[in-house]
Design a protein around this nucleic acid. Structure first.
Lengths: 365, 365
DNA sequence: AAATGAACCGAAAAGGCTTTCTGAAAGCTA
DNA sequence: TAGCTTTCAGAAAGCCTTTTCGGTTCATTT
């Protein structure tokens, strides 16, 4: 969470932070309903619009006394520069488009929050567009955003599988977040799911577990494979074999329950289960408990995604891997700001995930 | 979900919907990197900008042949009218601000989706701002949005308790969604939680249940009281007494478990539990099962919020009350559009909720 | 053939702001 | 006092589009 910087409309004076309601009255005198313009300010201050502009923007060619008069006039009128006009002039609108494919899905939201936060702290406003997973709707939104002269675009995916690029010919820079673009010339910011699988297993190893099983979600998802790959690698590095193959299924509690039943039948010696999602982990823990296995004493359980509703409420609270999605959003926003400033990067950049330890994993005693 | 209307940039020809990538090349000739302007189009078509404008906007004072030439030129250049300039001229930006206080919370998202959908189908773009529950940050955002000359504002709350009004002096209309404004002059769109409590109990009554308990969340929330009030009223109307008082606590599984344990100790005859949230319901069901009560045969359980991850995954799937939040968002968007068009309303408008029936409630056999 | 009208096109202004350039006044040196 | 530099204010252009209004062309009417 970043602090609010002094905005261009502060005119160098401390804003009245404590008043909750905005003093929007057109102020004594001008009973017009339209917001004040710079020429209104100039007239009230007895100067030209040019001078007024310079005074408010901190340009140097204006006497201190004059500047004071202009600032006072601007405040009396609650003047607030028209960003449309400014944008038209300077050729930069100070807006970006945030294009999500699936607002409903829970992965988009934290990314969006991170991006909004990173931009919101500056002077950039964010247009939100949800394509509902529909390419045509996405195109429609891109067109509309370009018409509004956004300075850049962030495309937020709902899964980590590569998605079609918007193309290289767009007049503004684009950053892909979570779902990478299929064009390596584009810049994509994604969580490092392979490493995530690795650090998850490393945590279980550090807890002294050696008979580790992996129950994960839909095999159609790259995330499932990446995590499984990292987990397998970490296991191999430790000279251990997995307990059975990675079990792919669905991202649901039901699959977690079913897979656990099978697992316990064939490998009752298991002492840790790494799950592909928190939902799966919930199902796993339910069956473990019903079958008389204690968590974490007999079997440690780890989830994925660190979804608080699920991790905090389970019994015991669930250790999980957090993808730091808010940071992904923030990084994407920063990368876009850089690209707008001319510093273009390309390729897929991965951000590390982190293990959040709770009660469902503990050292073997 | 609404359909995509023909946009102002379609120039009356069918867009190439099937091409995924946008044909953004600056087209043969003009190797400029800046997007094409109307005068570029006019030059290429051999007409004046005035004529080009009229041709593209479907004005009548243009010969068919000329119009064709202009449209062709516009397409060759991928021309797309600059909305900043248009907005500056017509005094309307075609944008609105969506001010949320808590993006993280799950209630904002569906509302936001509904609003985005309702606007997105028209020609209105949405600025997303998250105030993080901070009044100062909210003010900052309001100022910034007004500087961008939004045509209106939607304020989305994270709980149904009244919130401070933004004030009456804003130069643009404001609609409050989910959390009503404390000023009755403002327009607020909220879910009808009292009625929600009522219809929930009515559903349980329809299932033949007569010994109904109510376990709900944080007593600091208006939603908890409203639902309890509606539930009590419905019970009274049926000539029944509740099984114990409504139990307030927290919106968590843990509280659901704890309250259920107490409930079963004192009122083992209970045959239905209405819960203040799906999380509470999950906890309730866990304890019921552990104590040997079958759901729904012995005890029916109902949740609130209809949060799919929780309702669909539970055993049995959970009947719940859906607040139709997406509809709340849509209604707010429509009300704002109306207000921008001059049709201002005021007061608090409640939208009905609906019961989503799943396996956790069934008629007594 | 001249006048009338319709159809079409373009010049110009407006919208609010920033920036450059010009000009005036003041201060300084010699 | 003449000539110089500095400092500050304002006029005007430009950003891109829409709209009004005046002007041109061409066909029609008498």
């Amino acid at each position: 969470m970043s602090s609010i910087p002094p905005s261009a409309t502060d005119f160098g004076v401390a804003p009245k932070l404590l008043a909750y309601r905005l003093p929007m009255t057109p102020a004594a005198g001008s009973a017009r309903s339209h917001p004040a313009t710079l020429s209104d300010v100039a007239r009230l201050a007895g100067v030209s619009v040019a001078t007024a502009s310079k005074a408010l923007n901190g340009r140097s060619q204006v006497r201190a006394e004059t500047r004071r008069r202009v600032i006072e006039a601007a405040e009396r009128l609650s003047f607030r520069p028209n960003q449309l006009a400014r944008g038209l002039l300077v050729g930069r609108s100070g807006t970006v488009g945030l294009l999500t494919s699936d607002l409903e899905g829970r992965f988009s939201i934290p990314i969006l929050m991170g991006a909004e936060d990173a931009f919101g702290a500056g002077e950039v406003a964010v247009f939100l567009c949800d394509a509902r997973g529909d390419a045509i709707r996405e195109q429609h939104h891109v067109r509309a955003l370009l018409g509004r002269r956004v300075d850049g675009l962030i495309v937020v995916g709902s899964r980590t599988d590569p998605r079609p690029s918007l193309g290289r010919e767009l007049p503004v820079p684009v950053v892909y977040a979570y779902a990478p673009s299929d064009d390596p010339q584009d810049l994509s910011i994604v969580p490092d799911n392979v490493d995530a699988g690795r650090i998850a297993v490393e945590h279980l190893l550090a807890c002294g577990r050696t008979r580790i099983a992996h129950i994960t979600g839909d095999p159609g998802y790259a995330a499932a494979h990446d995590r499984a790959e990292g987990a397998a690698a970490a296991l191999a590095d430790a000279g251990l074999a997995p307990v059975g193959e990675a079990r792919f299924g669905a991202w649901s509690e039901g699959w977690g329950r079913a897979a656990t039943a099978l697992l316990l039948d064939r490998h009752p010696e298991v002492d840790a289960v790494l799950c592909g999602s928190d939902q799966i982990a919930r199902g796993v823990m339910d069956v473990l408990r019903e079958r008389g296995h204690r968590v974490p004493e007999d079997v440690a359980v780890m989830g994925f995604d660190d979804w608080q509703v699920l991790t905090a409420a389970s019994r015991p609270p669930l250790t999980s891997v957090d993808m730091n999605l808010e940071q992904v959003g923030r990084a994407a926003a920063q990368a876009l700001s850089g690209a707008i400033g001319g510093a273009r990067r390309s390729g897929v950049e991965s951000l590390r995930c982190r293990v959040v330890i709770r009660g469902s994993t503990a050292p073997l005693s």
